[in-house]
């Protein structure tokens, strides 16, 4: 999908320069919500202000809404037909597999080690067995990740400052070394 957006917005219409587009995509991708909608809102806002944002958002969701409304009315009519029921009996187990497979691939790409494996295992257990709302699990995970990110950022800042002779951290260190 992204390459289609890039082709239209950057190459054909030349609304946004290439580097700015990709910088913004990184930010938009990290936001919660529907990715296609976020991208549309950003491009619309950037090109034509608030009205542009709304127009682009409508463009991103109206086809889906129309298709699903049509299918939902048809599906309601025919879902009790034995033929349809047989087909969907076959499809349901496949859907389960299509949800499990990408989640395992995601665990692999997140470079989960034996130590951090506790995070996905605990998440699965809390939601699947304890029936805790995923909303709370996400909030807890955000809090945990934020603390972790703050610690990492701080460590990196300290490391950078110890190399810089004028920084206060370096002066303190030099002072300590000189003391004994």
């Amino acid at each position: 999908m992204l390459s289609m957006v890039e082709k239209a917005v950057v190459d054909q219409k030349k609304w946004i320069p290439n580097d700015e587009f990709w910088d913004m995509i990184v930010v938009v991708q990290s936001l919660p919500g529907v990715f296609a909608v976020n991208t549309a809102l950003y491009v619309g806002q950037r090109v034509a202000g608030t009205r542009g944002a709304f127009a682009a958002m409508l463009g991103a969701i109206i086809p889906s809404i129309t298709i699903i409304l049509l299918l939902a009315t048809v599906f309601r009519e025919y879902r009790d037909q034995p033929v349809v029921e047989r087909i969907f009996k076959g499809i349901r187990p496949c859907v389960v597999a299509l949800i499990l497979a990408p989640s395992l691939r995601m665990i692999k790409s997140a470079k989960v080690t034996w130590k951090t494996a506790i995070i996905p295992i605990a998440t699965v257990f809390l939601i699947w067995r304890c029936k805790i709302s995923p909303a709370y699990v996400i909030l807890a995970a955000i809090a945990g990740s934020l603390i972790y990110a703050l610690v990492i950022n701080r460590r990196e800042t300290v490391r950078r400052e110890t190399r810089d002779e004028d920084s206060p951290v370096f002066r303190v260190q030099k002072h300590k070394e000189a003391e004994p």
């Binding site: 990290s30 389960v96 597999a97 949800i99 499990l100 990408p102 989640s103 395992l104 995601m106 665990i107 790409s109 997140a110 989960v112 951090t116 494996a117 995070i119 996905p120 295992i121 605990a122 998440t123 699965v124 939601i127 699947w128 995923p134 699990v137 996400i138 995970a141 955000i142 945990g144 990740s145 934020l146 972790y148 990110a149 990492i152 950022n153």
Partner: peptide, 19 residues
């Protein structure tokens, strides 16, 4: 960095939906 930390939990979330 926050999102990197969030990723294993989100993978677990999806797995739970499948289970």
């Amino acid at each position: 960095n926050t999102l990197k930390g969030l990723k294993p939990a989100i993978a677990g979330l999806i797995f739970a939906a499948g289970l």
